[in-house]
Structure formats: C-alpha cells, structure tokens
Design a protein around this nucleic acid. Structure first.
Lengths: 167, 167
DNA sequence: TATTGTTATACTCTATAACTATA
DNA sequence: TATAGTTATAGAGTATAACAATA
C-alpha cells in the first residue's frame, strides 16, 4: 500500500495532459505521413533512422530495440518486415555467434531520404511552429533529464533482457 | 513539392527525440499499470476519465472521441467494451435523435477511483520526479500553445467527421 | 444531402511461451 | 545457467467501407 496520498496539482495535471495530447496528435500525423510517403510504420521508421544514423549502418538486434520496441519478438517481427522489403539485411554477428547484426541497405537509405523531408515538415509545422528558438532550447533542457531518469528507472518489467528479470 | 529545404537543427532534433522517447516510455509504463490495476487500456482510461470529469458524467460519442480515438468505428469499439463491462451506459440523446449519450456508471467511477492513485504514482515517479515546480510550470507553458496549435491545425484527414472529407 | 453511429471485415501490431543455439 | 534471437499463436486495436437512421 502506498504511504503517501498520491495526487497531482493543477499545474502538473495540465502539463501531463498537454504532453499526452501533443504527442498523441503529433504521432498520429507523423504516422500518416510515413505511411503515405513510404509505407512505413513509425516503429519501422525509427529502426531505419537509427540504423541510418549509425556510422556503420548496423546495430545488433538487442541494441536496436532500445526504447522503440518492448519485446524481443516484436523486434524480430519488425526486422523481418524491413528485411522482406529489402530495407535492411540481417547477418550473424562477427564477435558473438548468438547475435544478429542488422544493416541498412541502399534501398533503406534511399527510402529514408525520400521520407525524411515530409517527416520533418510535419514535425516543424505541428510541433515547432508555435515555439521560438529559445522555447525549443528550454523544452530540450526540460526533457533531457526526464529521459535520463526514465532510462535509468527500472521499468517494472519493460526490459526483460537488460536486467536479471528473475520472473 | 516543398519550396523550402526542410531541416531541423540539432536542438530541435534533440527536443523532438526526447519528446518521443519520454512519452513512449511514460505511456508504456502507464499502460502496464492500468492493465494490472483495472484491466484498462490507456484509451479506455482516457474515455472513462473524460466522462468522470464531466459534471453530468456524460458526453456525446462524437465529443468523447476528440484527441483520443481517430476513427468513429474505433470509438464504437471502445465504448462497446466499456459498456460490456458495465463501466458506461449508452442511451439515445435527448435533443438529437441521431446522437448517443455515453454516461459513466457507479462501477465506472469506482474503477476510476481504484486505478487513479497508481496511475498518478507512475506519472509522478517517472515524469515529474526530475522536475522542480518551476520546471513543471515551464513545461506546461511551453506545451499549452503547441496543443492549441495542433488542435486548430487541419490534421490532413484525422477528423473524417469534422470536415467534408469527400473521398 | 449531410451527419451520427454501428457493423463487417481485414489488417497491423504486440506479447507470451516454447524453442534453438551460443557464451 | 544465462543470453540472443526466432517461431507459433493468440489477442487487442485500428481503419475502411457499406449501412441505417435522423437532421
């Protein structure tokens, strides 16, 4: 049983609701754009973008999942879709024979390039339009520690592979 | 074709990524809590909370959907689930015979009350823990205009009932 | 003719558990 | 024994289109 009566004050409640609504609308808009422009789901786009960002264009399956997909089978499923459409390739890892290295293909990079401008336009038009440069900086400054905090907080059971998870 | 080369500077990109990751993790955690505490999905919780907030405990189907569900059939589906478990009741609207009025039941309020403390604890522990009171105020101040902007921006086709939608 | 809501249907996505293979 | 990844499977959620009824 909780030892403190949990409550949120009006300001917290407002911030929470704003956050939920804003990201929900943003995500919905972005998902539509990605679907139309490249027949990608948001998850697929995130995976692809993460690979594209990597210097090698590669990631191990496990590392690729972080914060994007919350179950290993979910990642396998998504990676399978990306591979089936030729956007990534999977190959056994060199150092650890258990691991799989996922690599973005030229087609993957091409699709990413084709989809990105529209994606950015949606984000700019929807999220950043009403914010000044300083506002954006302030927002980033506020959210960065939250992200760090969430990353380091045991997510109850969201990371079945990262910790012992004796259960 | 776009007439400006779309791009995001480093600060914008950071803010965007932070926003996505933070809300993704938050939502995932909250969804688990709601499922465990009351066997509710986040959408169901939002609908229930919205009804609970209303002075009458009621809303018309169409109004209930705003920002939570993006298709009418989706709302019908969710309302059907809530009704099947006795958390809401649906009845024809008094003034407009086409409309349906959804009303939260005592059981619905009870479940809401049972689920809310844990929900708040997750939000506090995950989102607000690393933020001072002023931080939260600043966050709310930044997000409020974004929410307003998004609400007033034609969402391409997200509101099939609000506009003509000839297609 | 436009709007409200439902239904049928098909599809996407996710998660659990059982399994294989390597460390 | 623990970890990496896959598979099978089942369930939840979503969207589209066709539909009925009212404005």
């Amino acid at each position: 049983m909780p030892d403190s009566p949990p409550s949120l004050d009006a300001v917290q409640l407002g911030a929470y609701f704003d956050l939920i609504e804003v990201t929900s609308l943003l995500r919905h808009a972005v998902e539509q754009q990605l679907r139309e422009a490249g027949d990608l789901s948001y998850v697929q786009f995130q995976l692809l973008a993460r690979l594209g960002d990597s210097p090698t264009g590669s990631h191990r399956m496990t590392d690729l999942a972080d914060g994007v997909v919350y179950s290993r089978s979910g990642l396998t499923y998504q990676a399978g879709l990306l591979e089936k459409t030729g956007l990534v390739v999977r190959a056994p890892s060199a150092d650890d024979e258990r691991g799989i290295t996922v690599t973005i293909t030229d087609a993957g990079r091409a699709l990413l390039a084709r989809v990105l401008p529209g994606h950015i336009e949606v984000v700019k038009g929807l999220l950043f339009e009403p914010l000044s440069r300083d506002d954006v900086k302030a927002l980033a400054t506020l959210l960065a520690p939250v992200r760090e905090h969430m990353r380091s907080t045991p997510p109850r059971s969201a990371a079945p592979r990262r910790r012992k998870d004796r259960g």
